[in-house]
């Protein structure tokens, strides 16, 4: 198998995890930056609509590196999709496939299920909850918690800070409740 074929296949966790972990020292060494992504959304608020809110009145120009970083993430995803795409459908656990089939979700092409996340679905209650309400919870929750998976779970835990462990446990608890108790109701909505 050639190298390019090899990197086109989905990467295993023991390759991806260490690469993500290395982002921590790389950002520290190239500019004393603490790894974190959700803050980019705070900077966007500070730039576009600070509205005299103290939380958004700070010198965002000093934090502009963070917006370069998320622009890079978007560009990296474009590159991976155009040049390194795996032609096979996404492999998913048979248990999950069986469960999702019960809600009519059978298309595994693409990492985002097109049957749930599409423009016409925005006008349905199910689509509104999945895209608009879900997004709101991500933005509100990460800022309330003071960080997301990168800021707390990777950077916070790497520097052995117990509040980040509390935050990470709460992320997981919220996710378990949503995925196991609430999502079955949301997915069974047919309007």
């Amino acid at each position: 198998m050639s190298f390019i074929e090899m990197i086109k296949h989905p990467w295993p966790w023991y390759v991806a995890g260490p690469l993500i972990g290395l982002t921590v020292p790389v950002l520290l060494i190239i500019g004393n930056k603490t790894f974190g992504i959700s803050s980019s959304m705070r900077h966007i608020c500070a730039i576009c609509l600070p509205a005299k809110i103290p939380f958004f009145n700070y010198d965002w120009k000093k934090e502009i590196w963070n917006l370069f970083f998320v622009t890079g993430i978007t560009a990296g995803a474009v590159i991976a999709t155009l040049f390194l795409a795996d032609p096979e459908p996404v492999q998913i656990s048979p248990k999950l496939a069986a469960e999702l089939a019960g809600y009519g979700i059978t298309d595994y092409h693409g990492l985002v299920p097109v049957q749930l996340f599409n423009w016409p679905a925005l006008l349905t209650l199910k689509g509104f909850i999945m895209m608009v309400a879900g997004g709101f919870l991500v933005g509100f929750g990460t800022r309330y918690a003071g960080g997301c998976t990168s800021g707390h779970s990777i950077m916070g835990l790497s520097t052995l800070q117990w509040p980040s462990l509390v935050a990470t446990c709460c992320f997981m608890a919220g996710g378990f409740i949503m995925a196991n108790l609430l999502i079955p109701y949301i997915l069974s909505l047919n309007f």
Binding site: M130, L137, G141, Y144, A167, T168, F171, G174, M178, I183
Partner: peptide, 13 residues
């Protein structure tokens, strides 16, 4: 509180 809310959003989106 924020952690729980974000976790829920993470699972939906």
């Amino acid at each position: 509180y924020g952690g729980l809310l974000f976790g829920m959003g993470w699972a939906i989106t």
